[in-house]
Design a binder for these strands. Structure first.
Lengths: 240, 240
DNA sequence: AAATGCGTTTGATATAGGTCAAAAACCATG
DNA sequence: CATGGTTTTTGACCTATATCAAACGCATTT
């Protein structure tokens, strides 16, 4: 954990960040952008397995992912855990903690990653000055709510194949938005983690991958996924 | 649908609302409260089955429930629907719509109900002036995110009995916070709706109620529920 | 190269909850 | 208070997914 203020090499401004279009500064004007730069100067790096925050920790900041991959999970008694999301560059995490001033889930790096820390009180102050930023912050929180509703739909009323198809299409779309291939990517998470997220056991996830492969929808080689028939995969989710 | 501005009998100010402690104005100072009063003057009443808003409708306002009961649901293709929540007095709904300027779910009255409309642009303007209100709005949105994570946990990793127990305890706690009995209440929603919310079929919900009754945990008579053994019900959720 | 260890795949079997169907209870209306 | 429609309960049976178990693949260490 380094102090970025003393380490100029880690200072990457929002204004020059290549995730600008996906992250907090979307749609901001020049003056707003400058002020936001001042706010997000602190960067931190994480290795696979490191915690960005833990359930119960005090709330100070939101975090924008610059590079890498995280998962968030809520813990129930006795090791039962539920993965609530997988986050990738340009996404903001930590909003769960605002309501009680403490984090209500864990955030764990799935690979070596880098984040920008956004002190929340300063973000609030800035968003009082700039209505555009304020609205954007509200949109980010609202988007999280909408995303969660989608997962409820998935968990509450889809079969295993539909869930996995929806999951893969969601990843595909997010990779695509970041300039990566929508059809070939590799998974950063284990079958176990996918299963937890989708409300399935890891064996079911593995079997469903195999089914998809048998039916020519995908090529899967452990963590490497190639979508062969996007349309048919889509028809699974909306479909029959 | 009446215009409240022309109907003084419907003008109930936040400052004199008995839900003050649960709703938007919690922790606000005198001046903030007055300004909020001016903003929430429009009331609307709904009958059982009426839509407060529909998926796709443009976003204008958040809604505070004054009396009654609502459900929210997201629609999937071909009639498949997922109930995402049941809302009671003092709760704020509509935040899903901020992200895309359009509602992403339906909100439907489960009984005759009354709401306060809170125009969102004016709420944002006011919260730029009053940091206390701003933080409170953020907390409300964050609370929704945390709530959704709890439901994901429930849908992703609990068995039918645990789900229903968690559901009843949640209702109990919310009735209790509103000054009603935590042990005896009646359900405003059908078995079907409970099932949709909990990711179960209505028959399973009905059977699980019967099991609980056989084991002396509850007395159920269709919509009337009496919790007989709160501790044992709790141990179901955290439990075994 | 062998050994160790984690994650994945696959198979055989079990079970929680789904499905289908019918009866019973409840509710609104004439 | 009879009627028709909806909701709920209960039963019998079925299936999707879980569980248990073994083998396999791949990466890392010795």
């Amino acid at each position: 954990m380094q102090n970025a203020i003393n380490n100029p090499s880690l200072r990457i401004a929002c204004s020059s960040c290549n995730l600008r279009e996906l992250c907090l500064p979307v749609d901001l004007g020049g003056q707003e952008m400058e002020r936001l730069d001042a706010l997000t100067s602190r960067k931190r790096t994480f290795q696979r397995g490191d915690y960005l925050y833990r359930c119960g920790e005090g709330f100070r900041a939101l975090y924008a992912i610059r590079t890498g991959f995280f998962k968030t999970q809520v813990l129930h008694e006795a090791g039962r855990e539920q993965v609530t999301g997988f986050q990738m560059p340009g996404e903001i995490i930590g909003m769960d903690a605002i309501s009680s001033d403490a984090h209500t889930c864990d955030a764990i790096a799935l690979e070596d990653s880098e984040i920008c820390e956004i002190p929340f009180d300063r973000l609030e102050a800035l968003s009082r000055e700039f209505p555009g930023l304020q609205r954007h912050l509200h949109k980010i929180m609202s988007r999280e709510i909408v995303r969660d509703h989608g997962i409820m739909m998935l968990l509450g009323s889809m079969r295993a194949e539909e869930r996995l198809a929806a999951f893969l299409l969601n990843l595909s779309q997010r990779f695509s938005a970041r300039g990566y291939s929508p059809t070939a990517f590799n998974l950063r998470m284990t079958r176990q983690e996918i299963g937890s997220y989708l409300g399935l056991k890891l064996e079911t996830v593995s079997r469903t991958f195999s089914h998809f492969q048998e039916h020519g929808l995908l090529n899967v080689k452990v963590r490497e996924v190639e979508i062969m028939d996007m349309l048919r995969l889509r028809s699974f989710v909306g479909g029959t």
